[in-house]
C-alpha cells in the first residue's frame, strides 16, 4: 500500500546542508496501523511530509496504492493528496475564520466532489467525533481536543486510503490524548484506513501493528 525507496531529504541552511532523512526504505501494508517513533530531530516528521506529498524528497520514491506520487505534476499531486490522503497535524490546523462544518467540508469542496452531499457528510463526521452540536462553532470557540477531533473529521471527508497523523496529541492533556488516539484507532479498524502515526511517545505506539524507529535520519529498528 505504502512503499518508500531510498528516501532522502536534505535542507540547505546558512551553515550548510543538513541531512534530515538519509535513505529510508519503508513498506506499510493496506489497513495497518504503523507508528514511526523517534526523538525530536530524528527525521520522522520529514519522512512523513515526504510520504504525504507535502515535501519533495531530495532523492527516492514514494508509492501509494501503486502511484509514484512524486512523479505526478503539481496539480495531480494536489488532487492525490486531496482524495487519497488525510492529515492530522501536531498543531491546531483548522482555518480560524471558518466554522467547524466548513473546515471539515473544505477538502471535499476543493476536490469539487459534486456527487456528494458535502455538508451532510461533514455533519455526520463531526457527529461521529462527538461534535454534532458544534457544527457552527468557530475553532476559537472549541477546546484543543475538540479542534483535533474536527481535524480528524476533516481528514476523513474524502475517504482517504492513508491517514497520516504527525504527533496529533503532543499538546493535549492525557485524557484528551487517549480520546484522540481512540478516534484514530477506530478509524483504522472500522473503516480500514491505513494509519501512519508519527510520535515520540512510546506508549502511543504500543498498539501499532508496525513500529518504525527512526534515529539520525535512518531506520534504527
Amino acid at each position: 500500500m505504502l512503499s518508500c525507496r531510498a528516501l532522502r531529504k536534505s535542507y540547505v541552511t546558512e551553515r550548510g546542508e543538513v541531512l534530515a532523512v538519509a535513505g529510508i526504505d519503508l513498506e506499510v501494508e493496506a489497513g495497518r496501523y504503523a507508528a514511526i517513533i523517534g526523538r525530536s530531530g530524528s527525521g520522522k516528521s520529514s519522512l512523513m511530509a515526504m510520504v504525504g506529498g507535502l515535501s519533495r524528497p531530495s532523492d527516492g520514491t514514494v508509492v501509494i496504492d501503486g502511484t509514484d506520487i512524486w512523479g505526478l505534476s503539481d496539480d495531480r499531486l494536489a488532487a492525490f493528496r486531496n482524495g487519497r490522503i488525510g492529515f492530522v497535524f501536531q498543531f491546531a490546523s483548522l482555518l480560524p475564520t471558518l466554522r467547524l462544518v466548513d473546515n471539515v467540508a473544505l477538502p471535499a469542496m476543493l476536490g469539487k466532489r459534486g456527487d456528494v452531499d458535502v455538508y451532510g457528510k461533514a455533519a455526520t463526521l463531526l457527529a461521529r467525533m462527538g461534535l454534532g452540536d458544534h457544527l457552527d462553532a468557530y475553532p476559537s470557540e472549541c477546546s484543543a481536543g475538540e479542534q483535533r477531533r474536527a481535524a480528524i473529521a476533516r481528514a476523513l471527508i474524502n475517504d482517504p486510503v492513508l491517514l497520516l497523523a504527525d504527533e496529533p496529541t503532543s499538546d493535549l492533556d492525557e485524557q484528551t490524548e487517549i480520546e484522540i488516539m481512540d478516534e484514530l484507532l477506530a478509524v483504522n479498524r472500522e473503516l480500514g484506513t491505513t494509519l501512519v502515526l508519527v510520535t515520540h511517545n512510546l506508549s502511543l505506539a504500543e498498539q501499532a501493528e508496525q513500529i518504525v524507529h527512526i534515529a539520525g535520519g535512518v531506520i534504527a529498528s
Binding site: 504525504g52 507535502l54 496539480d75 493528496r81 482524495g83 477538502p107
Partner: peptide, 15 residues
C-alpha cells in the same frame, strides 16, 4: 501556515 494547510488538504496552486 494557512496557505500550507490549504495545499496539504488538496488545494491546487491556482486555488
Amino acid at each position: 501556515a494557512e496557505l500550507g494547510l490549504l495545499k496539504a488538504i488538496g488545494a491546487r496552486r491556482a486555488q
